[in-house]
Design a protein around this nucleic acid. Sequence first.
RNA 1: GGUCCUGUGGCCGAGUGGCUAGGCAGUGGUCUGCAAAACCAUCUACAGCGGUUCGAAUCCGCUCGGGACCUCCA
Length: 488
Amino acid sequence: MKSHAKKLSIYNSLKGEKLIFKSLKDGFVGLYVCGPTVYSNVHLGNCRTFISFDMVYRYLVHLGYKVRYVRNITDVGHLVDDADEGEDKIAKKARLEQLEPMEIVQQYTLDFHKVMENFNSLAPNIEPTATGHIIEQIEMIQAIIDNGFGYESNGSVYFDVEKYNESHPYGELSGRKIEDLISNTRDLDGQSEKRAPLDFALWKNASSDHIMKWSSPWGVGFPGWHLECSAMSTKYLGEEFDIHGGGMDLKFPHHECEIAQGTASNGKAPVQYWMHGNMLTLNGKKMSKSTGNSILPHELFSGVNTFMTKPFDSMVVRFFMMQAHYRSTLDFTSEALAAAEKGYARLTEAMATLEALNTSLESSTSVNEMIESFYSAMNDDFNAPILVANLFESVKFINSVNDGKATISASDRLLLQTEMSAFVVDVLGLAPSVSGGEDKLAPVMDLVLDLRQEARTNKDWTTSDKIRDGLANAGIIVKDSKEGTTWN
RNA sequence: GGUCCUGUGGCCGAGUGGCUAGGCAGUGGUCUGCAAAACCAUCUACAGCGGUUCGAAUCCGCUCGGGACCUCCA
């Protein structure tokens, strides 16, 4: 464990303040993140949350924690309509497309994995599915019933929110009072199976034509949505674990229900630190599948979409996201992406420059201080934008050394190289994209640039510029400097 | 309607009771055969009105604007 690990503070949504992070078990962190519902392609807004927590995971690992990172796949259980006449999203989609539910699940799970890989997001240690944990969910429901917080009604089981609220505060995460919730609940049909409108489903009775269903002590049915996360986080991380993350929009009711379910089933609040990532906006509005205000990753990479003027690389998009704090909304525009693209190029070029930098006996600036600034940024609730700003201070320094206006010692160069790479590649997860086929191109470029250099020596500017412009048309930028000519 | 968040310069975004993040764009230089890159310098800010304070963009109140949740949502 790095000494910096002791200084990490995290904004805990439950307390509403930044607190020094202390894991339940020294050196170990249990991290649970609510994953996607695989009933359609993940859009960029979904990706932001997962990328944010990928960064969190990466930094915890960088600090030396042994992290068990669990992120679920929801492949059943989201009710499309009001809970009383609910139909699960996956089942609905399956009916529409005449497919097996698990076909839908497979298709979009693969898509999700591909997209996350594109964004250089690390796979979680465990990626459990809701359908794979029906037994665990049934057991948890039984425990909730046994403890007096759940009741059966017509083959369905509901969580008794008001009963729970008598002994535990319901709404503490989202800052709601139960009286307000009751008075603000929409009108429901009188024939509700629920005792109270606030009660939420733990298990839903399935009608005969429902295609995803399982046997349970209460009859054939399917689990309620909120339950899977409780069951799976308990199974893999324990009744109490360190960090639970997810999008801001899941705070209520989903996460509130998780707290209630965990507490009702085993008497303990499950989570130490709740973390919520903010929304990605498009045209100033939350990105959302249902409203159509969303963009898919591949549409962004290919440039085929109505929002952006050109295609953007996945690493540029990731860099762009890292320039905003995870708790702030981030607005997605073509102009902002283009700015990020240039900034990212500058950062990666400086890192390449650093490797070849001439060294001196001493450094003209404190490299140690620079590196400390990387840590202090990230230790302040994973403040990636400050880290990026501090990295650019280093970029400036590197370029100054390259210009002969500043100096760096050999040991500092090595140190800076190691740490910049650690923060840019390992923590921010920015992997300079590997372009294939360069092996064959390199000798060709050597030849072409050789010919151009001959022309330049002969002051044959027409020929040398023709070569440079021609290469530029092919997407290869040639740069001349005192040390020679470079290209990319 | 209820609860909560937010309003920063041309754009994106940090931050915070006094020391004007950062990126992109702009302007003027240096360098260069010319470019590009880089470096140096530099211009646009803290929604409005009032209050607290020696001092507020930062705290408080009001007004106006934007957003989220309250129903599936990352």
